[in-house]
Design a protein around this nucleic acid. Sequence first.
DNA 1: TCTGGGGTCCTAGGACCC
DNA 2: TCTGGGGTCCTAGGACCC
Length: 426
Amino acid sequence: MKTKPVQQLALVDCNNFYVSCERLFRPDLAGKPVVVLSNNDGCVVSRSNEAKELGVKMGQPWFQVKALADEHNILALSSNYALYADLSNRVMNLLAEFSPNCEVYSIDECFVDLTGMPELRKISYAIREKIIRWTGIPVCVGIGPTKTLAKLANFVAKKHPRSQGVFNYNALTQEQKYKLLTSITVDEVWGVGRKLAPRLAAYGVDTVCDLRDAHVPTLRAEFGVVVEKIQRELQEIACVGMEDVVPPRQQIMASRSFGNPVHEATSLKAAMALFVENACVKLRAQQSHAAMLQVFLRTNSFRPDLPQYHPVMSVPLVTPTDSSLVINRWATLLIDHLWRPGYGYKKAGIMLSEITPNTQQQNDLFAHSESTSDSKLMSVVDRVNGRFGRGAVRISSQDAGEEWGMRQERKSPAYTTIWSELPLAG
DNA sequence: TCTGGGGTCCTAGGACCC
DNA sequence: TCTGGGGTCCTAGGACCC
């Protein structure tokens, strides 16, 4: 029997991605503490190294950081997803030149299969060099025999300046691997989060090495298949394969927190029309239909002193559809059912599920199909909005009231995607 | 005063059927 | 009507990721 050659999986991860994107167009921000905030300027979602050193935590609410920010002149920017998505595409396209087998894992990460290629160190540095030169975004490269170990190698590349942004786990001896894994706490492992780490600690599993070498049946019995998979990946047995083609989404969600609590049903419907549109654009982009619609409303759960209400309701769509108009009619109906006076709603959203390819249409025998007549209209809407910007054509109820608007006071221009916001060379 | 959004996978428990 | 066990399907909720 032939043994399989060791996989050489590289995880390429952009450093402080959103902050790095912002700095491209604001060179004056280099070397200064900068953070990027989530929607509504709510939480910190990206930090420059300087901000990390000052103690700003990932996911921390901005209002908690404000005092520290004033003291140290930390600059906070609202998130600008159009900019980040555009730069992400450029980075991913460059990576595709290095291997035919790439998997875009998130907006700022990509697995690149380098199995069988010679001189991995040289290739890794070439990747860094090319991406910084063509996009200005710094990246780190971690190589391992499994995805989990590639992620861990990337963590090492980021953490240790001596690695110069590249770390190859496969190049280590058994003893070096042991020493490395013993020096890293188990919570750094991909898939071990907030809850799992303390539970593992109760079993004496504190380091990555502890997890790798833990008693298999006990681990399996106490923590289930999820942790067992992680363990095998750490033992260099690949359990998570490369996904060469992105599978279509099984559920599509669209939701937002509101800048201020919303009280009126009309405002909720206006927000809902936008959520429906956003979700349906994604649905149509992956050429699918949805057969289930769920609508939810939420009051502010951070305010237990206020009356709480978190209703959810679903409707099956008799004829699976991708029509914004059809789905919006149902969403409006659901709001009429869910809405109660006397509550300040802080968040709302929809979820589309039971998603199937739009080629597998099964029409209802008895009901008149309402969606097919919309499909031409929808494709025109998508084309117009693609050309003139999202929202050029929209469902009219979106315009009812601005009560639900989002706070974004610190947003940078759409430097790369809107002509009028291109940076000018003075 | 101010606390993101969009996903996936797994498990437990209930309903139902044979 | 009584009894039991086992399989399947569905849903809700938890945990994790970025």
